[in-house]
Design a protein around this nucleic acid. Structure first.
Lengths: 344, 344
DNA sequence: TTGTATGCGTTATCAT
DNA sequence: ATGATAACGCATACAA
């Protein structure tokens, strides 16, 4: 059997390549009857246009890229990214896009990224996450003129982006801890070069301050976004005698929880802990973790939507989407809530 | 500045397109001096061939696909796949390949997969995982003539594949439980349409049988490869009074552990539990999980190697690689081993 | 060893 | 409304 090309489809339908192309691309200016005929052939033969040829002819290839910076070795085991990839992948399937995944480390590989990704010209657009504030990568991408969107918080409003409502979410957490009557609230935050970390931290600081209980500077510590780093940081923090923790992420909160319990403090009686994300595993900790839920999966979907918008109309103003958050109260702040051994 | 094409590179180097092409593709038959000149231009300009054009001209595009079947909704949060993706991605970067990721569900999307992935002709080869024994997908791929490799166990030896040494690993687990003097060993296995599940189960069965302590059929249960399914299955199993569990995966073992402890049995005193994989989280359970470690990351790397081999020489005999496993003894089988509150 | 000419499968321009 | 034809950027058989 001969190769299945547009040419062949056209022949089978008794029309020219051009007409067949129009039909396949859903353009108008084709008699309904002819369109039907071509569509039938496509259906029967199962024709799918050759992506490379399409791209070469100056069209879209329907390939989207997702670039994730790996801070540490095994970062991809972070369930946050797992959920993100899942969301992006699902949306791609839905929109008939092929997904290209780029994991890269901050060092040399990031120059690599621009080279490989952009110069080979095979993706139509890029979703990038785990960026830093004023990340050089961002203006490198801007310069390259490739359509791209960011998942997370960045300063630049000329770039489309999506993230949880970090401000609102942090306020929910702060209000919760305040309502519990906590007096010495500690904050374990991710590095300040991460946009969302800044937002969450500031939101909490302002909220508790305006409630008349400003944060003790000794109770704020910044560390890497891993469980281990949070564990170590907390061990130090404990000497300043906090009665509550707002932690940047659930992943880090697990480290905090471990440190607190090892120090012999009871959770939540002596120390209350609130995380951020609501990972599936946060229900399984002892005690279960109170947290600010965000829908990362959905973030991925929105990112694809934004990117597709961008590709279609590169000159439209950049949109910023902030997804709602929700406070999930469990045993790490309120005794007996969402207990581990519940019969479901 | 004019567009950066091979043509332009050739002009700058004062040679023809063909010569430039040869140099870029590392072919010989070019005077060293000329080669140098072209290479310099490539260096200075930062030229990278247009992937689509390359592919269209009947060459490789240096794009590899990774297809993962999603059994349940959120399967990608399974750290196993996270590690696999990481390994594959790293190896791709190393070998200058672009990675395309395809997550698909078993239902309609699997036909989708062959259509989208194969007919658009943009990937050079495919790595596929989470396949079933006699998966129709496998011969669909074979038929399509695209080079592909499998991560996991399949019956067919004409297809290159890589996986942990499931047989050896299961024997390690069995020997361990036997050496602990356990008499009533239960097996919680993933569905038998999964190749590795069959292998592990049979290996354990034979091993304990040849030790004179054959498995009680009532103590073998098959369920979905999730924590929840394992939890439910175990609740039923407990009435048959096992004193040990061999569980298909760590993920499932967490469910088993929960069910056992909720039933008031002590782990490891009353019931010993061995998992498979050694996920990072298995160190953090209470008690920490004894398990058979496999290097999933490495599996991903090997998969890329195999695929590249396959693409290069499609007619070479298919290789099967089995990676070594290692028994990691922790608190779920031996009192006090790898205790949770250890100071590290 | 190097250059010329042709084709890969598609879209876009321009006729008809 | 439809068809012929020229790109798109590269590899390659063939010629020199």
């Amino acid at each position: 059997m001969a190769k299945l090309t547009l040419e062949r489809v056209a022949a089978l339908a008794g029309v020219s390549r051009s007409t067949a192309s129009r039909v396949v691309n859903g353009q108008d200016g084709v008699r309904p009857e002819v369109r039907r005929r071509v569509l039938d052939v496509v259906e029967v033969t199962g024709f799918v246009p050759h992506a490379a040829a399409r791209r070469l002819a100056g069209q879209r290839a329907d390939i989207l890229g997702l670039a994730i910076r790996q801070s540490t070795e095994q970062v991809f085991s972070d369930p946050y990214f797992a959920a993100l990839v899942q969301g992006v992948s699902g949306a791609c399937t839905q929109h008939d896009q092929t997904l290209s995944l780029f994991l890269f480390r901050s060092g040399t590989e990031h120059e690599d990224l621009t080279a490989r990704v952009l110069r080979t010209k095979l993706i139509d657009g890029l979703i990038i996450t785990a960026t830093f504030i004023d990340d050089p990568l961002l203006w490198q991408l801007t310069e390259s003129a490739i359509p791209f969107v960011v998942v997370g918080e960045i300063g630049n409003s000329d770039i489309p982006s999506v993230d949880a409502d970090n401000h609102g979410g942090a306020e929910l957490a702060a209000d919760h801890l305040l309502s519990l009557g906590r007096e010495r609230i500690a904050v374990v935050t991710a590095p300040m070069r991460i946009g969302s970390a800044v937002t969450r931290r500031l939101a909490v600081e302002r909220r508790v301050a305006s409630a008349g209980r400003p944060l003790d500077p000794d109770l704020v510590v910044e560390c890497d976004s891993t469980e281990e780093a949070a564990y170590e940081a907390t061990r130090t923090l404990l000497s300043a005698d906090p009665d509550a923790f707002f932690v940047f992420s659930d992943r880090m909160a697990v480290g905090v929880l471990r440190a607190v319990r090892e120090a012999g403090r009871r959770v939540p009686e002596d120390v209350a802990i609130v995380g951020f994300d609501d990972l599936p595993s946060s229900r399984q900790t002892t005690p279960p973790l109170t947290t600010v839920r965000q829908d990362v999966n959905r973030s991925g979907e929105v990112a694809v939507d934004l990117l597709l918008e961008r590709i279609l109309r590169p000159d439209a103003p950049a949109r910023r989407v902030e997804l709602p958050t929700e406070l999930i109260v469990r045993g790490s702040t309120v005794v007996g809530r969402g207990a581990e051994l519940s019969p479901r």
